[in-house]
Amino acid sequence: MIHFQGWVYRAHNPYWSFDPLSGDGAKRHGGRFNPKGVQALYTSLTEIAALAEYHQGFPHRPQPTTLCTYEVDCSDITDLTNPKERGKLGIDLDHLSSPWEMLAGVGRIPPSWALSQRIIEDGVAGIIVPSFAKNAPENGKNLVFWVWGSVVPHKVVVIDDFHRLPKNEDSWRK
């Protein structure tokens, strides 16, 4: 495991920008590295990768986006972009890139979910993984958190020095 310190990025539907640290959407719908019921915060190591992840369903028809930057000081991160680390854990890229939505849709457990469950149980707070968005940059990477909060050792805080993000969903009501 490594200690990650730096910035990460996340593109949001503007409607949900009042809660940029929420993993509730991932918990409600599931994601590549979390089944339904497991909270996760999906971020990217670059702005371009974050936008690619957000627009992956419509790469040629970008939709309105709120891009947030997060300050991270987090221990217990596993870098699955490192072949040696994947080998040590018995993971290959096929586990990470499996068609998780299709598998889950037919009642099968995607390999990425089984992997996530196993390493969460081992005390891993998050993983660095390649971006599998079709329009992602060649070396696009994501950092997916399962454990995060406002303090070290799992600090992930949104940078909003000028308080530009809305504080609640009332700003979107008509």
Rank of each mutant, 00 (worst) to 15 (best):
H55S: 12
Q56C: 09
Q56A: 08
Q56R: 12
Q56G: 03
F58Q: 13
F58I: 10
F58D: 12
P59E: 02
P59C: 08
P59R: 02
R61F: 07
R61K: 12
P62D: 02
Q63R: 13
P64M: 07
T65P: 14
T66C: 14
C68E: 01
C68R: 07
C68N: 09
T69S: 15
Y70G: 09
I77L: 09
T78H: 01
T78R: 08
T78N: 02
L80A: 07
T81P: 12
N82M: 02
E85P: 12
R86Y: 07
R86M: 15
R86F: 05
G87W: 01
L89A: 03
L89H: 09
G90K: 09
D92M: 00
D94E: 13
D94F: 00
H95T: 13
S97P: 00
S98W: 00
P99M: 01
W100G: 10
E101V: 02
M102F: 09
M102P: 04
A104M: 04
A104P: 00
G107E: 06
R108V: 02
I109F: 05
I109N: 10
P111G: 04
S112Q: 08
S112E: 10
W113I: 04
W113C: 11
A114G: 10
L115V: 10
L115F: 09
Q117G: 15
I119D: 04
I120D: 05
I120F: 01
E121W: 01
D122C: 04
D122W: 05
D122R: 14
V124Y: 05
I127R: 01
I127T: 12
